[in-house]
């Protein structure tokens, strides 16, 4: 399905992207910011220091306290959404994994753009690939969708390196949607922690295929790793499948527990189900999480 399907776009338009935390922004937007700004909502006072905008001096307070203090207001700023999309070869086997990853990214991006937020796409595999320039405004939806549509799977997964390279560019803290299968031999914990340390809010969207979760029993195969090229002889008998399922279960449990420990949203995106459902589930859960 093309990312520009009209029905899909109409359904997305009804949604409102809500971040779970307030972030500082470079320009005024529709989201509360942790920075004090110039909106009408009062936040606090602070002492005046030479050089401050004298227009912000609270003269009423001066009359009462005989001290110069400034009135501080909650700034309303735009949200930066970073779509960190895994384009490694493992997302191409089967191809539906990358497709669903792109659809989820497109949906998130669309919602953000319609909410006046900044959106940029950061595809990665063994390293960060050419990120797109941040776009803002509903008119840039086409640009976003074309960028996502051009992504193709290749290379191994190295989330840690990709995150390091992302952080090296010192983007404004924002919402980082990590859309991946998280099958990284080096692990996913450290890069996610790094994002947290850089004051980003990671959202873990785990792309899975049903055959990965529960392979069809029967048959002897030489499984070839799409990323590393290594092969493995596997007989899909009950014993092997039982061991594999246990491993998958442990992997999913660990990922879920990791996200929970850090207060992150973790959503599983299966190629077998409508990705919109997953997206709406996240968008619906976000306000509650953000208020917590």
């Amino acid at each position: 399905m093309s990312l520009l399907d009209p029905g899909f776009l109409r359904r997305l338009a009804r949604l409102r992207l809500v971040a779970r935390r307030r972030f500082a922004g470079a320009s005024a937007g529709a989201r509360r910011s942790t920075r004090r700004g110039s909106s009408a909502e009062f936040a606090d006072h602070r002492p005046y220091y030479p050089g401050d905008d004298v227009r912000r001096i609270d003269w009423n307070a001066y009359a009462r306290l005989e001290e110069l203090v400034l009135r501080l207001f909650v700034a309303e700023e735009d949200l930066s959404l970073y779509l960190l999309v895994d384009t490694s070869a493992s997302l191409g086997e089967p191809r539906e994994k990358l497709d669903v990853a792109k659809h989820v990214a497109a949906g998130l991006g669309y919602v953000a753009l319609t909410g006046s937020d900044r959106v940029s796409v950061w595809p990665f595999a063994d390293r960060l690939r050419a990120p797109s320039a941040p776009v803002r405004g509903k008119k840039r939806v086409g640009t976003l969708l074309r960028t996502l549509d051009a992504l193709a799977p290749s290379g191994e997964t190295d989330l840690a390196r990709a995150v390091d390279e992302l952080c090296a560019r010192r983007p404004r803290p924002g919402l980082v949607a990590v859309i991946s299968d998280f099958l990284d031999p080096a692990g996913y914990q450290r890069p996610i922690d790094r994002l947290l340390a850089e004051r980003h809010e990671p959202v873990l969207l785990h792309v899975v295929h049903p055959e990965e979760l529960d392979p069809t029993p029967g048959g002897d195969f030489v499984l070839v790793d799409a990323e590393r090229g290594t092969s493995l002889e596997v007989s899909l008998d009950e014993r092997s499948l039982r061991a594999y399922r246990a491993r998958v279960r442990a992997f999913l449990d660990e990922l879920t527990a990791f996200a929970k420990r850090r207060g992150l949203y973790y959503g599983r995106v299966s190629t077998a189900e409508d990705f919109e459902t997953t997206l709406l589930r996240y968008l619906g859960a976000a306000p509650r999480a953000g208020q917590a």
Binding site: G92, E93, P94, T157, L183, P185, L223, V224, D225, T230
Partner: peptide, 9 residues
Amino acid sequence: RIVGSTLLW
């Protein structure tokens, strides 16, 4: 058979 990853296997 080519699979995305054999890590779990």
